[in-house]
Design a protein around this nucleic acid. Sequence first.
DNA 1: CACAGACTGGAGCGATCACTACAGGGACGC
DNA 2: GCGTCCCTGTAGTGATCGCTCCAGTCTGTG
Lengths: 211, 211
Amino acid sequence: MRKTARRHQQGEESRLRILEATLAIAAERGYDGTSIALVTEATGLPPSSVYWHFRNKDELLAETLEFSYRRWRDTAPTWRDRTETGDPAEEVRDRLQRASHSIADRPEFWRLGLMLGLANRAKEPAARRRYIEVRTETRIAIRTWWEQVLAGGDPERGRDVADRMARFHLAVMDGLYMGIRSDRGWNLERLVDLIADGVYAQAVAWLGEAA
Amino acid sequence: MRKTARRHQQGEESRLRILEATLAIAAERGYDGTSIALVTEATGLPPSSVYWHFRNKDELLAETLEFSYRRWRDTAPTWRDRTETGDPAEEVRDRLQRASHSIADRPEFWRLGLMLGLANRAKEPAARRRYIEVRTETRIAIRTWWEQVLAGGDPERGRDVADRMARFHLAVMDGLYMGIRSDRGWNLERLVDLIADGVYAQAVAWLGEAA
DNA sequence: CACAGACTGGAGCGATCACTACAGGGACGC
DNA sequence: GCGTCCCTGTAGTGATCGCTCCAGTCTGTG
């Protein structure tokens, strides 16, 4: 992109600092609660620098979402590689456990996404549109993963069940995060193990059920 | 409260109009996205009227949450009366179906609550504190309901499972709402029935499991 | 009729919002 | 040494923010 990688590497560094700061702020306060003044205060950079790196607030937030999504996806275990223990229930448990950890440990992306997903403006911010896209991307990855876990039966039926599982899976992850945020007294690790068993049982039940 | 119930009933009417308008706006745009100017525009009343009825924005939002909560609770089936069909699985299905409808049909309270629950400010808005309270209230009501549905075994163990079920239950409701909002292609009614069976099976499994 | 109290109307307060114009500074190619 | 380009620093812009002042209007009471 930027052709002066060596010349002024300060620029790229500032850009990253701005993104980091914006992510921290936006994940706490949402789109409207994020102001350029807060970003400049956090980074020590003047507003003109922010606007040199990003066209406007909308684009800044959109790129911040993209930034946090990529980092989350790279840190979190991908849905592509499987554990392959032979026991599907065990694999589901492991997968859900890791997914819930990736949310609990670095919650910025999930927080920011939930906020963007909830808000509704007359003209949709680019950040929200982008979030819906990456969420769909994630849902499809989860669906593919479920298709493999549930492989063996009728492919079309497996695909249908996997789609429902992926939706349910995402819903549970959203719900878990909301629960951690809003209710006290969660024993996440233990609860996730138990839920995983329920989720897998659910999938098997759906698979066996008449169309 | 207000002693001129007959004299000037216009006042109370204006108050309600302000609450309605604020709810509609805040449920769409969140705390920071809600401005007094938007409220005055929606109601046709001047800012001074808003500030005559409510001390400041914080209190306005808090009372709006209270207002929407009461309406949701009165509209939605209470957790106190049970269906008592004799079949617990059927009752769970019915209950979850009605709960999901109460969210899908009049989503304002749930939307606003989720937004308030997510946001995190240096000084916590009264509206958010109040939301955490009514959420806890709801969670306890759900727990009590589960205790009754699962009655029969060891009471202490039933209470423990009911607590976990209530958390899980809320998480699923939150997750369902997020899913409807963010993902397309939901078949809510059907999915909820299936989830209900899974949820109930989960509860039974937890009940039977060794402590 | 006078008075009181409940509300409204309009004008405007200082602070903060997103955003910009523009003059530089510092590193590089020549 | 000179010009070029990347990026920062200063100092703003008009618009909108939450909120207030206060005169005026309306309605029921004595």
